[in-house]
């Protein structure tokens, strides 16, 4: 996703001379092409997240289209007030890009874990919040975010994630029905869609055909797709690399409560706890149910052929 992010940024800057990129001292060699082509529109402000965001707000007030980039945990947490006030209160079109959202930096410890980035960004009125599932979604969503009138957040993963196999269009605010199905609906955001596809495809031989709905945009949530999933399925299995509060699960649960929906909600993902022990990322995903086997097992558990 980071390669897709950096490459897309260059294309965007070529197409729009108001695009300006600010990094909080992150991205060694990743943005060399951008920096070489647009040296004046590349700013490394240093390890200074508060300034990173205030400075971007100032640029946006002058009609620039800033993209700010740093590690997701530091950018959304440490600079939260700057995001809330300088960007949110001023309703400025700043793109906030959090690298390594979720547990991508799992071995680096609790300081680098970002299981609350979506929650924090969703707290800011007017903020569009996206969690792409693969590099293609990064490349498609980023230019769309740059055309929004207000601020947006995009969680950018790591390098070399697999591509999602889906012909569904990629539009901000619109979910993607990656696999049609019935009985059970798997709802994903972010990279969780990849193991979810694997799980759903593996179940076909057993005659189990859950629907798979993917939401790269958590806010605003595509309620038409949620409603369609509810019409097809009585159980939602929500899979996300995010904490319980303020992510996809919470948003769908609020929808279900408001609708008095009879749908059963089941969640797979990290719990409300600190993760100690510097685990490998893939091990942590396994432990928290974010892998194909656990998703398939959960679907089987709720599957009832009609």
């Amino acid at each position: 996703m980071r390669r897709a992010f950096a490459d897309t940024l260059v294309q965007m800057a070529r197409a729009d001379d108001r695009i300006i990129f600010l990094t909080g001292d992150l991205g060694f060699q990743v943005f060399d092409a951008f920096c070489a082509e647009f040296p004046r529109r590349y700013l490394n402000v240093g390890v200074a997240e508060a300034h990173l965001v205030d400075c971007a707000a100032g640029l946006a007030l002058e009609g620039w289209r800033p993209v700010v980039y740093s590690i997701a945990s530091f950018l959304t947490g440490r600079a939260f007030e700057q995001l809330r006030l300088s960007v949110g209160y001023h309703q400025l079109p700043v793109i906030v890009a959090g690298a390594g959202g979720g547990y991508i930096y799992a071995p680096s410890g609790v300081t680098h874990h970002a299981k609350e980035d979506v929650a924090l960004m969703s707290l800011i009125p007017g903020m569009t919040v996206t969690v792409p599932g693969d590099p293609t979604e990064v490349a498609e969503l980023l230019p769309q975010l740059a055309r929004l009138p207000g601020p947006s957040y995009i969680r950018v993963g790591r390098f070399g994630e697999p591509r999602l196999d889906s012909a569904e269009p990629i539009e901000v605010g619109r979910g993607r029905c990656v696999r049609p199905g019935r009985g059970v609906a798997v709802l994903t955001t972010g990279g969780a869609v990849i193991p979810a596809v694997k799980a759903v495809d593996s179940l076909a031989v057993e005659g189990i055909e859950p629907l798979l709905a993917h939401f790269h945009t958590v806010r605003p949530l595509d309620l038409s797709l949620v409603n369609a999933a509810a019409a097809a399925a009585s159980t939602f299995i929500i899979v996300e690399e995010h904490g319980i509060q303020g992510g996809l699960y919470n948003t769908v649960a609020a929808w279900a409560a408001e609708q008095r929906s009879p749908v059963t909600l089941k969640r797979l993902g990290p719990g409300d706890e600190l993760v100690f022990g510097n685990p490998h990322y893939d091990d942590l995903l396994r432990q928290t149910g974010l892998e194909a086997g656990a998703i398939a097992d959960t679907v089987r558990q709720f599957w009832s052929p009609d």
Binding site: L43, H51, A57, G58, E62
Partner: peptide, 19 residues
Amino acid sequence: SLGHGLGMATGMAYGMELD
């Protein structure tokens, strides 16, 4: 809220310089 004006000013100044 204190501590934001200077950062915003620097962003404005840099943007004005580019322009």
